[in-house]
């Protein structure tokens, strides 16, 4: 097989995987998605009490419900951001995580809010 044929086949493979991904994305429910991806971290995620920011409907949010909502949001942002360049890391002790996340804030240009919430999720 010559170079051009191999290139064409691989480009076709890349493209079809994009289409497949796009098609599946539309079909699949986000909850099953979270468990199919980031397997290592989903184990830690299951101990969250199931509340989501939207599912905390109490009219006066208590410090506890804010904590829980922030934790869930932190986990979401961890999943969105921390596996983008490398495998999502496991949890390190809080002061180590604080340094690593400050490093990532500079390197990965994650936002101030991402830094705060991810640190919260990773250290609690």
């Amino acid at each position: 097989m010559n170079a051009r044929a191999i290139l064409a086949t691989l480009c076709a493979l890349c493209l079809s995987s994009c289409f497949l991904a796009a098609a599946q994305e539309r079909k699949q429910d986000p909850k099953t998605v979270a468990s199919s991806r980031d397997q290592e971290t989903s184990a830690e995620a299951t101990d969250a009490d199931g509340a989501t920011p939207a599912a905390a409907p109490s009219p006066k949010p208590t410090p506890r419900s804010i904590e829980a909502a922030e934790r869930i949001e932190g986990e979401k942002r961890f999943r969105t951001n921390c596996g983008r360049c490398h495998q999502p890391p496991h949890k390190f002790p809080p002061r180590v995580m604080a340094t690593a996340i400050r490093h990532m804030r500079v390197r990965a240009n994650i936002t101030d809010e991402d830094q705060r919430l991810i640190l919260k999720y990773m250290t609690q």
Partner: peptide, 29 residues
Amino acid sequence: VIWQPLALPLDIRAEVARSQRGSGYWIEP
């Protein structure tokens, strides 16, 4: 471009660069 579709454990990364000393691209799923 970097894309991690939510539905699949797939990462797609690609870059293109152009200069007077050479140009090119790579795509990596």
